[in-house]
Structures are given as structure tokens and as C-alpha cells.
Amino acid sequence: MKITLSVNGEGRSLDVDPRTSLLDALRDHLDLTGSKKGCDHGQCGACTALVNGRRINSCLTLAVMHEGDEITTIEGLGEPGALSPLQKAFVRHDGYQCGYCTPGQIVSAKGMIAEFSNGWPSHVSEDLEAVPDFSEAEIKERMSGNLCRCSAYPGICAAIRDAAPDEGLGEREAAE
């Protein structure tokens, strides 16, 4: 099937078998190999991408289902020489060891900060109706969809806390 995807602000045409996951389309057809394949079953978060600003597991969706959507990958957040605040903070806080989960962690954190800023509660929020603190407990729960085999969690958490104010923490999105 011939489809056009909008990835990191650029229209890209590709010819894919309908079975192609969004993750495989990004990696194998568009050469955007920042997104990683850990489990291919929604269990690790290494493939996290933003679709219309929302984080999803790109391994559990089909590329053909995303025509017209705005897709953002780690490459779209920043590049060597022009890193995003989250990317810089991961370097500063040593938020990784092998680095395999890192793109997924950073893209997920970007989506998570937007969810938090829109007032979404989490499983650990005491009061469903109050605005929770951007605490370590909240970050851990909200980031539980990203596993790190090297267990670099302390650095990951510190990097997210540090970078969040520069990534728009507290800025409510206009309603869709």
C-alpha cells in the first residue's frame, strides 16, 4: 500500500505491506532508527513515539493507520548539536548505561510532561481532582511503561525532574 506519513514535520511517502508496524516503518522504511524495538509487544516502551503529541507504543500500531497524523520521534525532538532540554538532562544526569531504552524514555517523558500539564491524574495521585505535585512518586508511576534493563532509573528520574520546566511543565495545552 502506498501511504504518506508526516514524520517530524516532513511528509514522507512509502510503500508498505499492511502488516508493517509504525515502528518498522520508521526504522526500516524511513531510516529513523532512533526508535528501538525491545519487545515488539507493548511491554517495554523502547519504541515510544508521539502521535499528535501523545505518546504511544509504535510497535502495537500499523503504519497504514496513521495517514494524516503528526508523528514525532526522538530525531524530531533534537539532534547532535541542537539537543532538547530532556536530551541534555539525560546526558548531564547519566540517565542511561547501554542507551537502548533512552530514546523511548525521552520521548515518553516528553509526552508525560504534557499529560501532567493538562492536569491528568495518575494511579498514585491521592486526590483525583487536585493538581498533583511533580514528585518522584508521580514520575515513577507515569514512566512505568518504559523499562530500563540497565536500571538507570535514578538518573532517568533526576533528568526528567530537571528538564521538565524547560519542556513546558505546567503549560496547559489548548483543548483540541
Binding site: 516502551g45 509526552g111 481532582e129 507515569r142 518504559n146
Partner: peptide, 22 residues
């Protein structure tokens, strides 16, 4: 969240942020 908190709580206890978005 206000009228059916059991539903919010159940959803938030399931899967992950990425999966719940989809």
C-alpha cells in the same frame, strides 16, 4: 473523576501511559 472515581481509578491502575493513550 468527580462522579465515577472508581472508573478513573480502575483505568489508571491498568497498563501504561502509552497503552492508555491508544
Amino acid at each position: 473523576r468527580r462522579d465515577y472515581p472508581v472508573l478513573s481509578r480502575a483505568l489508571l491502575a491498568g497498563a501504561s501511559g502509552q497503552l492508555r493513550n491508544k
